[in-house]
Amino acid sequence: MADGVRFEGDLAALPTHGFGHRSITWWGIIGFMVVEGMFFALSFAAYFFILDKEQTWPPAPLAPPDLLAGSLLTILILLTEIPNSWIKRAAERYDLATVRKGLVVMSAAVIPLFVLRGFEFASLNVSWTDNAYGSVMWLLLFLHTTHLVTDWGDTLVLTALMFTEHGKEANRFVDTSENALYWRFVWLSWLLIYLLIYWVPRWLP
C-alpha cells in the first residue's frame, strides 16, 4: 500500500458477533458436520455393499439385534431436543441464567444415553470378528458413539465455561448456540443408523 490509500468508510460501529451463518463458528461446525456426514454416508454405502453379497440379512443363522436398548435410546435422544432447543433460544437472547441451567440438564441427560449404548453393543447378537455383517454393525454403532463422546465432552467444557466470567462474552453465547446445532446433527444421524441397525435386518427377508 505504498502508493497511498483513500479512506472510504469506517467499520467501528459493526457488531463483534452474530449468530448462525454470520458467525465463523457456524461455518466451522457446518464443515465438520459435512465431514462426519460423509463418514456416515460412506459407512452406509459399505453396509449396503456388504448386504448386497448376502443371501439373507442378517446372514443365517444370526438373529437381528434386540430392539429394547436401541429403541429406548432413540426415544431419549429425541427428548433431549427439548432442553437443547431451550438452550439454543436462551443463548440467542443472551439469557445466561437459562443457558447455565440448560447446559447442566444437557450434560446430565447424556449420561443415561451412554448406559443404554452399552446395552446396545451387548444386544447386537454378533461380534465384530464373526463376519463382515458383524463388522459393519459394530462400525456404525462405534462411529455414532464417538459423536456422543465428543459432543458430551464439548458440552461439559462449555457448561464449566459458562459458569465463569467468560460466560458473559457475546461470542460464548454464539458457541452455545452452535453446540446445540451440533447436537441436532448427532441425533439426526442416529435416526438413520437406528433404521440400518435395527429395522433393515427385520424388513429384509
Binding site: F49, I50, E54, T129, N131, A132, Y133, S135
Partner: peptide, 14 residues
C-alpha cells in the same frame, strides 16, 4: 489389528 472382516472374502467381506 482387531479381527474385523470388512475385506475378508471368507467371512463375506469383499
Amino acid at each position: 489389528l482387531i479381527g474385523t472382516q470388512f475385506f475378508n472374502p471368507f467371512e463375506h467381506g469383499d
